[in-house]
Nucleic acid binder design. Sequence first.
RNA 1: GCCCGGAUGGCGAAAUUGGCGAUACGCGGCGGACUUAAAAUCCGCUGUCCCGAAAGGGACGUACAGGUUCGAGUCCUGUUCCGGGCACCA
Length: 813
Amino acid sequence: MEKYDPASFEPVWAQRWVDDELYKAGPSDDPRPRFYALDMFPYPSGDLHMGHLEAFTGGDIIPRYWWMRGYNVLHPIGWDAFGLPAENAALKRGIHPKEWTYANITQQESSFKRLGISFDWSRRVNTCDPEYYKWTQWLFIKFFERGLAYRKAAPANWCPNDQTVLANEQVVNGKCERCGAVVEKRDLVQWFFRITDYADRLLDDMSLLEGWTDRVLTMQRNWIGRSEGARVTFTIAETDQEIEVFTTRPDTLWGVTFFVLAPEHPLAAELAARAGKQEEFREYLARVRRTSDIDRTAAGRHREGLFLDAHVTNPVNGERVPVLASDHVLMEYGTGAVMGVPAHDQRDFEFARQYGLPIRIVIAPPGKQLDPEAMTEAWPHDGVMMNSGPFDGRSSDGIIAAVTEWLEEQGLGKQDVNYRLRDWLLSRQRYWGAPIPIIHCPACGEVAVPEDQLPVLLPDDVDFSPQGESPLAKHEGFMHVSCPRCGGDARRDADTMDTFVDSSWYFLRYLSPNDGSQAFSMPEAAAWMPVSQYTGGIEHAILHLLYSRFFTKVLHDMDLVPFVEPFINLMNQGQVIMEGAAMSKSKGNLVAPAEIIDSFGADTARATMMFAGPFEADVDWADVSPQGMYRWLSRVWRIVLTNADRIARASGQQGESALRKATHRTIDGVTHDMERFRFNTAIAKLMTLANEISDADASDADIAEAIDALLHMLAPTAPFITEELWHRLGNSGSIHMSSWPVADPALVRQGSVTCVVQVNGKVRERLDVAPSATEDELRETALGLARIQDLIAGKEIARIIVVPPKLVNIVVR
RNA sequence: GCCCGGAUGGCGAAAUUGGCGAUACGCGGCGGACUUAAAAUCCGCUGUCCCGAAAGGGACGUACAGGUUCGAGUCCUGUUCCGGGCACCA
């Protein structure tokens, strides 16, 4: 018999599928039900790596399964092709980022084809193509027109290594998530998207995300960081200026003994000046600003405060308390001002001790007396309120709402909500991105580039070596433009967009990728969206997924899409680990998918990854065995070909042989596994079926049925060997467009008709019973068994539990 | 500190809603068959302890300690450890 030699047929099928456009989605008005399978599109940083193999194989099995279930499947691919690595790589090699990017895209494309991923190649998009980023720019303008894109001066996260600003989401522990450099603060005028306007909806609509894991939902919830409380108005005693604070503990308002402003708060400088402390304040502020965010937010660090020689009046009791500036108060959160309640907030407690500020107890712990002098930590819990005017003597448990209501009645404050989420900083001082389509006119201000002048093309001839400002700024031909509104001399915006803007809507572009007249077709979007199943890495749990959700909501508000969430079902593959670290080129622990393909073929590479463990779990490369999988696929090859003659002469369908029961039980189980993405157990069940086929003493027809089912169920995971064998068995067409097998429920049930008989919970006997056996029958049969009679002899039967048809448990004393 | 996950053989991992002997399937290991030999392939064994020459039987066993239940890997309480998110966010 011919040996299993994947190299001899895999490339042939790969090419054939592409030539035949086998996986081209049908039109959206096709009568079949639709299934939109989406993979997070790759960044073309080089060839595909192990992580891609894992992610895209899982992401391929799903659409292949639904094709076989008779669906009209859309499974597109594209490239997230703008971004910094292209510039860095280009600088290193002295070639243009465009050249590097497209070369990598070509490489990845051919690797995808070699792996047999079932993409609809006719829909591919590259975010760096002008045909694509024209519409990214168009969307920016729509956001701008709605007031959702705006420019402001703000202390921005600056990566000194990459020479650009970063969004909050791209700063991890004070470091650049890309290169690891410690991020600095720089005051810059930057473009922002007003994502904070959508904070509540991003939170509330999480209830629609049925197919997301708790893990990702929690991460998003934490990131948005909603907290409820009250906004209360204090007054600067010396100047009568009003100043608001946000607090989650309005019940402790009577315990305020000091007041803190962020050093960057304009009022801080003002009060310092008033007190004649300009010089001291300037030095203080300079020192604070030099401190990196990591240091400034490190828990337990020394806080640096400065008395401003002013006081505020506490609205609830008229008391005057001192005002300080301190670097632990953040300008960007709440109002940039905080009331100090040292008795009931640990941070305030530590600060008060540090600066000798008084402590006043307003909530007494039950059955305990607090002594402000002797306290070693704050009491943040409930107790009995005291020194609290109208609330004296009441339990603080659940009192916050009542206090807030009282504040509102008195006109002193109101209920308020704050978020940790900040607006999305989207401008980047780098070259390889979509230019921001805004023209700065001395007379008209910020003017959007008119739609008919889009795209604003990214020029090729730019010196993009990082110099701390946008490379485009030095390109006079690009920068110089006349104002679309007044015709006067104006300048283009020199920044490019964060690449997460590009990826926040690509799933819509796939639906009408070649439409030159609009970003996406509304009817196509209405038909295909939301995405049926989204597959990708958990590293995007916040960034990409939050941004895409935000974009979708904005598009919904613009009446461009009828849905509010883009991805209802999300599947996150695990990472591929080697020697304790994620495989990566920089760590030098790389095993390239190509190595496995060369040695064992694409099917082995795919199936190995899927069998290694649950799709969501990390895979340690040390634990996987391509050899083992290759051995099994070879076994399938032999089983099928040695039975080819029997299959050819098989006719008729008969009875209830053991093999038929096994076949149908497997169909039932694997179908179930497919729907739950349990690819590892699906393969295990197919292995079991293969074992049963080779052990079976069955009729030709039963063998034929079992092998047919095996090949079909293996097809999504190992598309090449199944296609090859299917054709060798004399079939025409593609197995991948044939039908998924259907289990006969009667045969499935036949599989498990063993009834166990327990005595005191321990299995003592087993019975073969009819699936329809009744409780009474089972009890009688069980009690009649000799062994059971021995075991219960002389004992009192306390109870008999019968679960037909599976179990009888006799409880004796 | 707060919030989410998780812990099962030598290893990766299985076990619808509590209900078949826990550890399927594979890897690794051991033994055997075939072969001049090797590779490949095929067959058998492979949680711990105890009784038995064997067939077979018994006890224990899903991180730890309890609990609920006729019955717990699965539910509840507490603890330990591991992974992840947030963290001076007022």
